[in-house]
Amino acid sequence: MFPACVECGTTRNPCRCRVVGPTLGFLAFLVAAAIEWPVGAVVFLFRKGKGRRIMGHPATVVYPSVAGAIPI
């Protein structure tokens, strides 16, 4: 089973739906989260603010940049 994310109602392309960008963004999010969440949890023990930023990085930076780069 392959995960597919669909975003409809956008004006970025003629068919007004996006599938490729959000799906690749989700896969990039999973890869980044698998690496950054354990690291962020260890850092959180010593510096809470820095650990929270590391654990939030996949959702605030990785997913939006990958999903926004592909208009279809």
Rank of each mutant, 00 (worst) to 15 (best):
M1K: 09
F2I: 11
C5M: 14
C5Q: 13
V6G: 06
E7W: 09
C8K: 13
T11R: 13
T11H: 09
N13E: 05
P14M: 01
C15M: 11
R16S: 11
C17N: 03
R18F: 04
R18K: 14
V19N: 02
V19A: 10
G21C: 00
T23M: 04
T23F: 06
F26N: 07
A28N: 02
L30D: 00
L30H: 00
A32L: 04
A33E: 06
A34P: 00
A34H: 10
I35V: 15
V39H: 06
V39S: 09
A41K: 11
A41D: 11
V42T: 11
V42W: 13
V42L: 15
V43S: 04
V43P: 01
V43M: 05
V43H: 02
F44Y: 14
L45I: 08
L45W: 05
F46S: 10
F46I: 10
R47M: 11
K48T: 09
G49R: 09
G49D: 06
K50A: 15
G51I: 07
R52L: 15
R53M: 12
M55V: 08
M55S: 02
H57Y: 14
P58Y: 04
T60I: 10
V61N: 11
V62R: 01
Y63E: 02
S65R: 07
V66F: 05
V66K: 00
G68E: 00
G68K: 00
A69R: 02
A69E: 03
A69G: 12
I70G: 00
